[in-house]
Nucleic acid binder design. Structure first.
Length: 452
RNA sequence: GCCGGGGUAGGGUAGCUGGUCAUCCUUUGGGACUGUGGAUCCCAUGACCCGGGUUCGAAUCCCGGCUCCGGCCCCA
């Protein structure tokens, strides 16, 4: 038995690596042009970073371990938390806004299936320091631009947590987690049942999440007005009561706390509406969809997800929104907006056909090996394509055969005759035509013919 | 964690109602062809996922494990 790859990991053969590199470079080129700067963080972090962000239950899903010094560490399951940790550690006093992008491998201990691996790559960006619609629109437009650049057509769904959270304040705190869960899981029947049970079916929640697109926004405005009228009643009192029971024992407690913290700005639908208009300016098409709640607590308002066709169950290729994480990680509270793209999922459906450049082969008669190696050296300095030379001790014919099988565009043939004349023979591998050239002309001609 | 379907040379496959040397294609290395490739021919390398069980005998049947694929859950 040979040694196998660990479960859920992949090997990337030269062809795969080339394709991945090409798509990555394309995306990073766009990020740079939008003024985002690349950063990198460690592959592993203190476990606490991730439990602080997502709660202790995350430990079940990640690679967590103790090192030899007894420290609790974890392979990063995502990159937003490390990036914000880096921000809190060393970038808090940098001029705002900060535009950052990253690309890195992440790890989760999950059952592998299509589009889901134990080691996977995420590419993302964070705009730190603003949660204005301007910032959100830029980030969302950027995300769609990146996905487009790979030839993948994505379907952008744009949500806003404010209204739903406003509605949540109208129902008992103890019922909120389960209601949120039903929304997230798209359990319509259970949701309707639950709302009726707790006497909250008049809020318009089920109606809201069913609406999509332009009409959803208009209707949301009306619902917000109704809600504002209702909240003049007992709501503030209840809010207070909630905060008193917010000892951070688990997800439920956190949920209530953060919902309330964001209360002041929650119902600001004008903000959301402005974002929708700005996105139109960017030419980014979005479907308004209040069903997107992205279960994560630190999102404060705008959230979005992008789906792609042709991926089966794992069709989400991008997720993001506006969040407050710096405070949670011990820094001064800062609003940021960002997204992560599932790079592997993009690669499964990417429409680009990128191929490595064809190499040039130096083919020689054994007795002039030295001259051939020197020629190869010169060619490598002068050309932008791979230059390869025989290391198998093969004869001339076998070398040409090899050149052909690796797809060489040209062969530079060197024998005693050429050495004597100070020239080399250039053979076009597709046509078989040959010409004798001096060193300088050889490089000039080849450069011209091989550069794209 | 749960539910299905698979695992035979590097890749793709036949065999799988148990019994000669496990089939064929391709790839790789060598040769026919020591100054000219793509063709052809010859040679070589190379596999029954692992462990038990049933049997005179297991690639084949049974059980367990590992792993891959698809779905659930969760997410990227």
């Amino acid at each position: 038995m040979t040694i196998q790859r660990p479960r859920g990991t992949r090997d990337f053969l030269p062809e795969d690596s080339f394709r991945r590199g090409a798509v990555r470079k394309r995306m990073q080129g766009i990020l740079e042009r939008w003024g985002y700067q690349e950063i990198s963080t460690p592959t592993f972090e203190h476990l606490e970073l991730f439990t602080a962000k997502s709660g202790p239950s995350i430990i079940e899903e990640i690679y967590a371990f103790k090192d030899k010094g007894g420290r609790d560490l974890a392979l990063r399951p995502e990159l937003t938390a490390p990036v914000m940790r880096m921000y809190v550690n060393e970038l808090q006093t940098a001029p705002k806004p900060l535009r950052l992008h990253y690309f890195g491998n992440c790890f989760r201990y999950e059952r592998p299936q299509r589009g889901r691996f134990r080691e996977f790559w995420q590419l993302g960006a964070e705009l730190v320091g603003s949660d204005r619609p301007d910032a959100e629109a830029e980030v969302i437009a950027l995300a769609t631009k990146l996905i487009e650049s790979s030839g993948v057509s994505g379907d952008l769904h744009l949500g806003y947590l404010g209204l739903i959270r406003g509605m949540m304040r109208m129902i008992p705190a103890s019922e909120r987690p389960v209601v949120m869960k039903f929304i997230d899981k798209k359990e319509r029947d259970l949701l309707a049942e639950k709302l009726q049970e707790i006497g909250a079916d008049h809020l318009g929640l089920t109606e809201l999440i069913d609406l999509k697109g332009r009409r959803a926004l208009d209707r949301a405005m009306e619902l917000a007005d109704n809600l504002a009228t209702m909240s003049d009643g007992p709501a503030p009192e209840e809010t207070k009561a909630d905060s008193s029971e917010t000892t951070p024992i688990g997800a439920a407690g956190d949920r209530a706390t953060r919902s309330d913290r964001a209360a002041a700005s929650d119902l600001d639908l004008a903000h959301f509406s402005e974002l929708v208009d700005l996105l139109a300016t960017y030419g980014t098409e979005a479907t308004v969809d209040f069903e997107i709640v992205r279960g994560l607590e630190y999102y404060t308002g705008t959230v979005f997800e992008i789906y792609a066709a042709g991926l089966g169950a794992q069709n989400q290729i991008c997720g993001g929104g506006t969040y407050m994480l710096a405070g949670l990680l011990g820094g001064q509270e800062t609003r940021s907006t960002g997204f992560g793209i599932g790079f592997d999922r993009i690669m499964e459906i990417v429409a680009l056909d990128e191929r490595p450049p064809a190499p040039v082969a130096v083919v020689f008669v054994p007795q002039v090996r030295t001259e051939a190696i020197m020629a190869a050296k010169e060619l490598r300095d002068g050309l932008d394509v791979p230059v390869v030379i025989d290391v198998m001790g093969r004869g001339l014919g076998a070398q040409l055969k090899q050149a052909s099988s690796i797809g060489a565009s040209f062969a530079v043939i060197i024998g005693p005759k050429e050495v004597e004349e100070g020239k080399a023979t250039l053979r076009d591998m597709s046509t078989g035509s040959q010409e004798s050239l001096g060193r300088k002309e050889m490089i000039e001609l080849l450069f011209e013919k091989t550069s794209r």
